[in-house]
Design a binder for these strands. Structure first.
Lengths: 190, 190, 190, 190
DNA sequence: TATGAATGAGTGTTCATTCAT
DNA sequence: GATGAATGAACACTCATTCAT
């Protein structure tokens, strides 16, 4: 038998990411992916069950990568505010350095393609952040509100700022990131 | 020649909104819109140049409606914080009462269909809010940061909370809205 | 609007019949039908919901045509044997004169495409024959067996002889038809 | 070289039969057969030239099996009517006990896949029956008609009754078989 | 104005088969 | 002998849009 080309899987992922960034998720067809990855369309079906499977696996890979970047060597014993700031900065840096992954995650999460199984599987990647929120509330350092609300205020403004950065509307440099970190902290601190 | 039928235009809009909410933007085809609006597909082309034109016009209409709801009888002479709170509450209430408009706007903004021309045209609808931000900064009541940043912190957490509300994840009731208003204010106030 | 081309529907039917006879039902694709009917494949979907709908309608049309040929001016007051013979002769003549319809019906009935709704709808076309069987049993002229069994012995030998005729194995001329009528009558008569 | 694995060949046959019965001939693909037989799709090509070859060989095997069941210990010296009845009963019992073989033969014979070479090769399996017909005509016990006609009236009604039995339309029990034997005999006897 | 008819280009997916090991 | 990898061709069907009336 022929040896499995380990890079082919990766090439398909890369082609998919690139296309989704260029033309959008809904315009990204299997045949376009195939052409861009220099394989036959039917070859994709050797590596993935179908389009949904391909996107789900790419989504989990993106989430895994992001979580890895955010929480590798993450010191959970740090004071709440310091840990919070580090997380938010790492999160934002990941987005800025991984535009393609981020914009894919964004589009995929906002599409009806996201099935619940996937969303539950991917949630666990961010456990450290949720634990941080809980600890912060226990110590009365964070506001006594739903963790989901803390998460919203922590993640979405930075994400939106990054999106506007990518669209060329308004640069997200380190100065601006400092402001975002400050404003975010103000919103969640007790 | 006969006058264009104003109600037909409206029916097409309504059908489009409904479909986008039910099956998603990318699954909303001209023929589905036509069937749902009880007109022939070709009739849509009497009222709109093409699909893009239809969606753009619907987007502007949605933005106009939202701005109208937010700023009708809006007293610009109120103190900054009061004006800010009123705006944010009205904004959130609009979203909650106009699920279809909101989810359409969301999907459309996240799609590559949104052309820049449209996005500039639609910005002016929110002039009163931008003026409020400027005034707040002048009076040193709001943080000295980009207006776009103030806008991000003001709009996106509430929008995200509404989305999770619509998805059934976490109810957005008046108590929660109070928390959001508080957290948002904390993030933007000087 | 453009006028509906009444012949187009008929052309699609004809192309379908021809293809099914030439290459078989399972090899008859929508694109082959389209090419053979000199229309675009998508045009077929203007006239029929989908492939199943096209085949079902063609099947009903074939059944209707056969029933028309068999029972037009059919004198139900004739003696059983005479009526029986006329029916069987007409049935066989229909098959011989309508090879394409017959071979399509055969293939369709033996395929999993035949849905029950269709089969019930089409059964009523042969009511006169079933009534004849019932009357024959009442008068003790036919054997006291299930009507379905009478139908099997009446229809299938003639059908099989026609199939072998079409395959060039053994000609079905009037002499042979006389023999078939005799043998069939012997099998069902009391 | 290694010997071809006889059980693998058999497994492929079994899987093919099963699939054809479950999903139909036209839905039975090489990859489905492979999966069902627990071999790789390419392994099938070690044992058979291509799909057509596989089906042809399975067809001959089915015919051989049927003939074996019908004519083993068949006493050609019996009186015509007794021999005829025994043959017909064995034939019907074979069908009822070998649903999978029978339905495969049926589907294959009605498909354009059946090539003439195959059909001639398979005819010889039924020589004993043809000899019986010839003898019956010589003794003026059977009608003086084509042997092919005698064969049609002998085989097809029973086959059709079995098909309706398998479809759940009308049970083929011993009582019914007795009726079929009687009716068939009436049709062929002089 | 309104619309049914028509279509080329595209969709995701499966197919039988061959290749390289 | 056995098989995973690979593929061009085909499948049924939908799309946005134009045409003729």
């Amino acid at each position: 038998m022929r040896l499995k080309d380990e890079t082919k899987n990766e090439n398909i992922f890369k082609a998919t990411l690139q296309l989704i960034n260029e033309v959008g998720l809904s315009e990204t067809s299997m045949s376009k992916i195939a052409k861009s990855a220099n394989v036959s369309a039917s070859t994709i079906y050797v590596y993935f069950e179908n389009k949904e499977d391909l996107l789900n696996k790419l989504y989990l890979e993106a989430k895994r990568k992001m979580s890895e970047e955010m929480f590798t060597d993450f010191d959970e014993s740090l004071p709440i505010q310091a840990a919070f700031e580090i997380s938010l900065r790492r999160f934002t840096h990941f987005i800025l350095k991984n535009k393609e992954y981020f914009l894919f995650i964004e589009q995929f999460q906002n599409s009806p393609l996201l099935k619940k199984i996937t969303s539950e599987e991917s949630a666990e990647y961010f456990e450290p952040l949720y634990r941080l929120f809980e600890k912060g509330k226990e110590q009365n350092i964070l506001k006594q509100v739903d963790t989901s609300l803390l998460n919203i205020f922590t993640s979405y403004p930075a994400m939106q700022a990054a999106k506007e950065h990518f669209l060329g509307k308004s640069e997200l440099n380190e100065d601006k990131l400092n402001l975002i970190v400050q404003m975010t902290w103000d919103s969640v601190k007790a």
